[in-house]
């Protein structure tokens, strides 16, 4: 979007080229009508999503910002329930919740692990997904068979998978330890040791996330024109050169999106942590979002505290997105 003109007509080249000129209705007169005439179609296409999202996510978000500046809990937000009238007694406290959260050593420790967890998971997701997609994109016997098997983890509901893995990892009646024992090896405390538990949850999340990446990349590979490869082969390009200079750039539109979304997704991956380890042992596998949940949902709910954590997560991810976008722009992507 670097080249966006004031009237919004031209934006870079390629697919980013503005189509509005083509869709302009005839007979547009004054500047306002022309402006509307040029953009009505894009607005109409996005309007349903924008309106619904603004209501359903925008309202809670704005309310969250407000609550994070107060000391609101479930006990002091006013309401009337039948014969019980609870007066509103919460107060504005400014940025106190934010300073308290950032000064909390638990926040920083959790943030560190959350970042590590996200980086490792997304790298493995994309790396393994790309590798498998490239293998599956070749002419190959049993291709659909492999594809169906490989995508199975995605077809199983995530909460079910989390339960199966917890069962497989179980120290006493789990199949992994049973296999180790059968092979004469000592049992492993898959979910009971702080360090091993971290690896275990990563394994589960990678298992869950690779099929999606694989399919997304596979879709992207299909969109790379074949004659580029043919031309490259004729020019004597090695497989690595073809991968490096045709496959990777060709995948970029899809990859930049799924990696960005995958990062956000993994950063907020609640189900795996919550259902497999519950954040334990101790608090060793707790990520920011499970901790925010704990604040929001244990006992008397801390509306202000959980909103603060939620907004901090949002700020961190937004900052990350801005940096990511800058990096993309440098390589020619634009939005």
């Amino acid at each position: 979007m670097a080249a966006q003109a004031v009237d919004g007509t031209v934006a870079g080249g390629g697919p980013a080229r503005d189509q509005a000129a083509l869709h302009r209705r005839p007979g547009g007169q004054g500047p306002v009508r022309r402006f509307i005439g040029r953009h009505w179609y894009a607005w109409a296409l996005t309007a349903p999503v924008v309106i619904v999202t603004l209501v359903l996510v925008g309202y809670p978000l704005v309310r969250g910002v407000y609550l994070s500046l107060t000391d609101a809990t479930e006990a002091n937000v006013g309401r009337t329930i039948g014969m019980n009238v609870i007066p509103s007694t919460y107060e504005f406290v400014g940025l106190k919740n934010y300073t308290a959260a950032l000064a909390d050593p638990e926040f920083l420790a959790t943030l560190g692990w959350t970042v590590l967890w996200t980086a490792v998971c997304v790298t493995l997701h994309y790396g393994l997904g790309l590798g498998l997609a490239i293998l599956l994109n070749r002419p190959l016997r049993f291709r659909s068979f492999y594809r169906v098997l490989l995508v199975l983890p995605w077809a199983v509901p995530a909460f079910v998978s989390a339960f199966i893995w917890r069962y497989i990892f179980s120290a006493k009646y789990g199949v992994l330890n049973a296999m180790l024992n059968a092979a004469g090896l000592p049992a492993v405390a898959w979910l009971d040791d702080p360090a091993v538990a971290k690896i275990s949850v990563i394994v589960v999340n990678v298992w869950l996330g690779v099929p999606f990446m694989m399919l997304a990349v596979l879709g992207g590979l299909q969109a790379i024109p074949g004659e580029l490869y043919e031309a490259a082969s004729m020019d004597g390009a090695t497989p690595w050169q073809r991968f490096r200079y045709i496959t990777l750039p060709g995948l970029r539109p899809v990859a930049s999106t799924v990696v960005l979304l995958g990062t956000i997704w993994t950063f907020n991956q609640f189900a795996v942590i919550f259902l497999v380890t519950g954040g334990g042992p101790g608090t060793s596998t707790q990520i920011l979002v499970t901790n925010a949940y704990r604040l929001a949902f244990t006992g008397i709910r801390d509306y202000a505290g959980s909103a603060t954590w939620g907004l901090l997560i949002l700020l961190i991810l937004s900052a990350m997105t801005v940096i990511y976008r800058r990096a993309l722009r440098r390589t020619g992507e634009a939005w």
């Binding site: 405390a189 009971d192 334990g280 101790g282």
Partner: peptide, 21 residues
């Protein structure tokens, strides 16, 4: 009213002791 919140910190401490952390 807060009694439901007392168990979580305690079990986390207990787990830290058992896991050797």
């Amino acid at each position: 009213p807060e009694q439901g919140q007392l168990f979580q910190p305690l079990v986390e401490g207990y787990q830290d002791l058992v896991s050797g952390k």
